[in-house]
Design a protein around this nucleic acid. Structure first.
Lengths: 188, 188
DNA sequence: GTCTATATAGAGATAGAC
DNA sequence: GTCTATCTCTATATAGAC
């Protein structure tokens, strides 16, 4: 089969979402791609770590773009965040929560044990936080306040995905959506 | 050495906190306990999974007790949550964020792949959410509202721990503490 | 660029002596 | 209850033919 870095990255993101870093073997990645071992090390000479770091970066870009597109449709920042979180709840319910927070699992596992991965996760979160922050600023909230709220919203989203996955229902994401709406509204 | 189930559980919690489920080998647990392989399977015939399930339960109980004790010292619910989250920021900074959310890492990894672990994590979160809910109710917030806010707060705490670990600073936890204070205050 | 075979290490678990 | 030896499986990575 004609392979490419892109195919590896796409399949890796999916598996990371479900199983995290240690839980995702290069074997299962190879399997998902229909590739042989040699190809992986041809495209990613530094192996699994290199592949996962790139997967995190690609995933962050994709998510940031989706969020930005969604935010443009919403007048206020509280609406934007509310819509985003409800969309996540729906997406999760449609997929039995097999998809979720690809970065979160890696971040938890690697925060204190793998520098490269930690940095990749950190930068991914900064990118997503910035998208939220910009929407808050565009909505008239002063910069330093916007920064603090954006971090809180990012935290809440990640935690709510975790709870929704654990409960196997979108309820936590929907509850948290309401709370974030109120929080942003009250901060104006 | 004279061993016990308790020693295994205590050491396992510590390792899970840093490395998650797949990242924590039974070998490293044995090492930390100064135990031999046979002892583990003597105390926990079903092996790693049984041990980890118990570790999650014990950890949930300990955390719930700490929270309850802390909450008793605080007049209002918003104060209580604020104090808790700031205490977590401090604790993290004192430990280079090597400690954190033992349940979160396992929950992420096992949500879609291991039923027993998922249930243990789910119950752990329900227990912690209940502690927060009771404080909100005691503070005069009606039950259904209290439930929804408690879930949001739990989500935010878990997410903020994740961000703090990733950034290696307590800032996200402190930002989120302020936000949760505002959220609860505005919900009265 | 793709394939197979292999190297090396580590995983979780079991059996049975003491 | 503890220890050691061992089983089986799987992990990541490499080498070299094609």
């Amino acid at each position: 089969m004609r392979l490419s870095r892109e195919i590896f990255i796409t399949e890796t993101i999916k598996l990371l979402e479900e199983q995290g870093y240690h839980g995702t073997s290069t074997r299962s990645i190879l399997n998902a791609c229909g590739a042989q071992r040699g190809s992986l090390y041809h495209f990613f000479p530094d192996g699994k770590e290199e592949l996962v770091v790139e997967a995190i970066q690609v995933q962050a870009n994709v998510t940031a773009n989706v969020m930005q597109a969604m935010f443009q449709e919403c007048d206020t920042a509280e609406e934007a965040v509310f819509e985003l979180m409800n969309a996540m709840a729906e997406r999760g319910e449609a997929n039995n929560f097999c998809v979720g927070a690809p970065v979160a699992a890696i971040a938890q596992e690697s925060a204190t044990t793998n520098h490269q991965l930690r940095i990749a996760c950190r930068d991914a979160y900064r990118q997503l936080t910035d998208v939220i922050k910009e929407k808050l600023i565009a909505d008239g909230i002063p910069q330093s306040k916007a920064r603090s709220i954006a971090i809180s919203v990012t935290a809440t989203i990640e935690g709510a995905i975790l709870l929704s996955r654990t409960e196997q229902t979108g309820a936590p994401l929907r509850d948290a959506a309401v709370s974030m709406y109120k929080l942003i509204e009250a901060s104006k």
